[in-house]
Every structure is written in structure tokens, then in C-alpha cells.
Write a protein that binds this DNA or RNA. Structure first.
Lengths: 106, 106
DNA sequence: AACAAATATCGTAATATTACGATATAATCT
DNA sequence: AGATTATATCGTAATATTACGATATTTGTT
């Protein structure tokens, strides 16, 4: 019928899948790369960097925020986004570990 | 309105997103882990390992195959799946590199 | 207070994903 | 050849994602 059977899988498997899903759009990859390139958190012009409408970018930002990968700090009238260091490191650890443990047989 | 604007992003960004998308379901994570756990390629009973119908598992296998992450070798009446070593290593490299290059600012 | 700027949310349309039963296909066995 | 087994594909329903215009919200400015 269509809805994911998440409850049938382990918490870790779901965590990995959720993380991968957060990265599963080129716009979100681009957003993370842009935030990373700025070495300060003075970012509020992400919309100008992407070929997408303000509403759509906001939606992608919300997806990254929900995954915990970025934070948004209110900075006057605008919002300064940045990578959530702690969550990012955890995500990196989780994914890296998964990537390494998958072994080939032939 | 609704279809991804893939062409507006770099090939690498799309490659990363496609790879992440292939991993963006717990069933596919579980399949990869199961294939990895078997140290030979005698795999054809993935359906029994998952709480999903044969048709659905086949669909997930097709997704992993399309992403290049697994191969299926015809082995008599059944099919023996295994991790595609070369493609997996490339994917691992691509993703690991991305994970490492994203830097936090605060 | 009125206005402008930045961002989020709503409503909605198009498309994609997930899931499964039914059926097709292909190989092996009797 | 006919039956059996393994896997893929089709059809379809439910749900999720992507995209954007319009509108709401929040904050700073005049």
C-alpha cells in the first residue's frame, strides 16, 4: 500500500536511511557545500546561490534542519545557518562506519 | 512543478545525491548488510531475510542494481547477488570525501 | 505606526517512491 | 512435455517529495 515499514528495521538501519535521505537531493548537497565553504555562519543568501525559488530552498533547509545536520540562528531580521557540528560528526561517523563495514565477496 | 531540476546542479552533486538516494531506505541498507555478511556470493534468499514481499524486495534490488552497487549473476534457476566491488569502492570514496570536506564553522 | 526585507508556511500540482498481488519469464526437475 | 522454483515485471493504490506562487510572520528601518 505504500507507506514505509520502518518499524520492521533496526533503529540504526533507519538512522542510516534517514541520513542518506537527507543527502539525497543535489540542492541539499549544494547547500551543505555552500555552508561549508563560508568559514563563518553569516549565511542568509543561500537562495541566490541556487536555481530554485525561495520557498523551495526553505523547504530543503527545513529537511536538513529536521535531519539535525544544520542549525539556524536568528540574526536580526535574517537567519544565519550553519552546519551542526555535533550532529554532523555523528552522522559522518555513522555513515563512514557503514561504508567501511560493507565488504565485498568476489 | 515537481520534477527535480537535476540539470542545474553539477555532475558530482547529482552523483552524490543519487548514491545517497540508493541508501535512503532501511530495506536497502539491510540488503547491503546481508550481502556483506555472507562471505560468498551464494545469495538468493534475501526475501526470507526481510519483512517485505518478493515483489518489493525485487524492486529494492533493482534500485541497488541501477545505482551500480550490486550485481546479479545468473546461477542456474536462481540469481546470486553480490556487492559490486569496484562501484562500491568508488561510491565509498565519493561519499567519504564529501563527508570529510564539509567543515563546521562554529 | 507604516514600510521594507528575510524567512517560513500554506495550498496545490506534478512526479516519485513504496508496497503488494497477479502474472510473466526462465531454468531445473520429474 | 508438464510441474516446480526463482526472479522480474505489470498494474495499481497509498504516500512522499519536489517545486512554486501566494501569503503569513518576524524583525529592522524610516
Amino acid at each position: 500500500m505504500g507507506l514505509s515499514k520502518k518499524e520492521s528495521f533496526s533503529a540504526r538501519q533507519n538512522q542510516l536511511a534517514d541520513l542518506a535521505r537527507a543527502l539525497a537531493h543535489p540542492a541539499r548537497i549544494a547547500i551543505l557545500e555552500y555552508l561549508s565553504k563560508q568559514n563563518a555562519c553569516i549565511c542568509g543568501d543561500i537562495v541566490d546561490q541556487l536555481p530554485l525559488s525561495q520557498a523551495t530552498v526553505s523547504q530543503h533547509l527545513a529537511a536538513l534542519k529536521q535531519a539535525g545536520l544544520i542549525r539556524g540562528n536568528i540574526e536580526g531580521a535574517s537567519i544565519s545557518y550553519c552546519i551542526n557540528a555535533k550532529a554532523w560528526n555523528e552522522a559522518k561517523e555513522l555513515l563512514s562506519h557503514f561504508l567501511v563495514t560493507i565488504k565485498q565477496c568476489c
